[in-house]
Nucleic acid binder design. Structure first.
Lengths: 147, 147
DNA sequence: GCTGGATTCTTGACTACTCAAGTTTATGGG
DNA sequence: CCCATAAACTTGAGTAGTCAAGAATCCAGC
């Protein structure tokens, strides 16, 4: 088997382990999944804490449908609201509520801790973490950097 | 946001892009998903092309339940069979059929091509591919190396 | 040689997506 | 003005996995 295929399969495998760790911590302490957290985090990074659902989908690597489904429970528990656009009645923004923002900052602490635990120890000098981030960015689908 | 968290989130994001690419190619040409392919590949690597379902789960980073569910359609289409263990009536091996083995070698070609496409171009010198593989191995959950 | 606990596997109920189809609204050309 | 096409979103149906509970079997100690 080539290095390329081997690497791709390792990446897939590493992801499931990673997701499990984040899910365990986040759901234990805050009752949300990693997917929920990343969604809230993106909203938190957006100006005004709000985004069109289509853009959120693009940023998260989901379909529009996936965003609708992921947002629903967060709206139910009051972390996110739906806001209409004055110019275009088709678009429904997703916006962090004040509660959502408050809860997000606490989730972020947990997520940082979890990430730190994962990348801790002699196996993970800072340069390797940055190096990994760099390599992953080259793969990153459409990534964070826009289309 | 720390490098560690950023890196973890990038990894998750990169994986979804990767899986989509493999799924598209594999399902188009061979009618299987990447998950199906990795399952068959592990079987193919095992001595005799067969493994206990529990070990398969461990190797793939799934639960035993996930393996049962994933194997079912592959048994239906005749790529895998169930074999009993002479010593222990609890265990049911999953084994590649002759057809399964033949189909697998062709899938492997497609998977290699896809991986090669992904890691192609000036952004991906061979040392970086190997470097990525190495970094990912440090994360690899329980990985291939056993517990 | 029986009984209690552990192991292997399957199943039911649930979650988190996907894709395809449908609804509503916007927009550019005649 | 009206129409065709396109964009944003939701919804129904299906897939891939999870977890918790259950059935069968194995084995260790008495």
């Amino acid at each position: 088997m080539s290095d390329a295929l081997d690497t791709a399969l390792r990446l897939v495998r590493a992801q499931t382990a990673l997701v499990r760790r984040f899910d365990a911590r986040l759901s234990g302490l805050h009752g949300v999944s990693l997917a929920d957290f990343t969604l809230l985090l993106r909203l938190g990074q957006a100006p005004g804490g709000r985004m069109r659902r289509v853009d959120l989908a693009e940023a998260l690597g989901l379909t529009a449908s996936g965003v609708t489904r992921g947002l629903a429970p967060l709206e139910r528990i009051g972390l996110v609201t739906r806001e209409p656009d004055a110019r275009d009645a088709r678009v429904a923004y997703a916006a962090l509520t004040a509660t959502g923002r408050r809860r997000l900052t606490r989730m972020l602490v947990t997520a940082e801790e979890t990430a730190a635990e994962i990348f801790t120890g002699p196996a993970w000098p800072a340069t390797d973490i940055a190096g990994l981030a760099d390599l992953l960015t080259r793969l990153g689908g459409t990534g964070l950097s826009g289309r």
